[in-house]
């Protein structure tokens, strides 16, 4: 008797949430990293107001993608250390439910960090980042990283190199997501007309759908043991 699909997905997401609420391990390390990253960027780039407007989208996305890699590694490592992944595989649930469950958790954590970054960066860089379209871009972009990242982190956690391999495997694959996100957000931040950058948001959505289908199909092959 299999647990119904959505019930299983929600149960896995809830498990990750509960573990996070108790340990606060993931969000604190991801948040701390993100904070340091935007501070280092502002020192390293010595940004004046014009330059800031140009690069702030790039800074945001670089920070989000590295924070998501950090979180993915940690989340998969805890599954591995506690052998809870083996338990998940033994449980009478669909393999796809495991994928969507882990994806859901990773997505929520990364999005939380991304959303917290927006007011913080508005403050530090003196540019208003609280914008509905930017939030939509952030959601779609983070979703793209979480989709590819969940599949690839499940793979790398089983290899010898572990943590160090994930960024090497993930950054090139996530490139289409990154490219579309950066272009859409720079357009939004420059206050360019909708027609100039809206196509990027559509491309981003299309890339997300393609990756979601592909990673969902391939996930079953990386967890069989």
């Amino acid at each position: 008797m299999k647990t119904p699909f959505f019930k299983a997905v929600i149960a896995i997401v809830r498990k990750d949430m509960q573990a996070e609420l108790r340990s606060r391990e993931l969000l604190s390390s991801m948040g701390m990293f993100a904070l340091l990253s935007i501070l280092i960027f502002s020192f390293a780039l010595q940004l004046d107001i014009v330059a800031r407007q140009e690069v702030v989208g790039g800074v945001l996305w670089v920070t989000v993608v590295f924070a998501s890699i950090l979180g993915l590694n940690r989340s998969m490592a805890t599954e591995r250390e506690g052998s809870s992944f083996d338990a998940l595989l033994l449980a009478p649930v669909d393999r796809a439910a495991v994928f969507f469950g882990k994806l859901g958790g990773n997505f929520i954590f990364t999005l939380t960090v991304g959303v917290l970054l927006l007011p913080l960066m508005s403050l530090l860089y003196n540019i208003v980042l609280l914008n509905g379209y930017l939030l939509a871009t952030l959601t779609l972009g983070t979703l793209g990283f979480s989709i590819t990242g969940t599949l690839l982190a499940t793979m790398t956690v089983q290899t010898r190199a572990r943590e160090s391999l994930l960024p090497i495997l993930m950054l090139p694959i996530a490139l289409p997501v990154l490219l579309a996100s950066v272009n859409a957000s720079s357009g939004i931040l420059r206050a360019a007309p909708l027609g100039d950058w809206f196509a990027w948001l559509q491309i981003l959505g299309a890339v997300d759908v393609i990756y979601l289908a592909l990673c969902y199909l391939l996930f079953g092959y990386v967890i069989e043991e």
Binding site: M155, Q158, L169, P172, I173, P176, I210, L218, Y221, V222
Partner: peptide, 16 residues
């Protein structure tokens, strides 16, 4: 198995 999965995903950079 893993190489097959990654080889399929990697084609996205070629199309890009």
């Amino acid at each position: 198995r893993f190489a097959s999965v990654y080889g399929i995903l990697a084609i996205s950079t070629v199309i890009m």
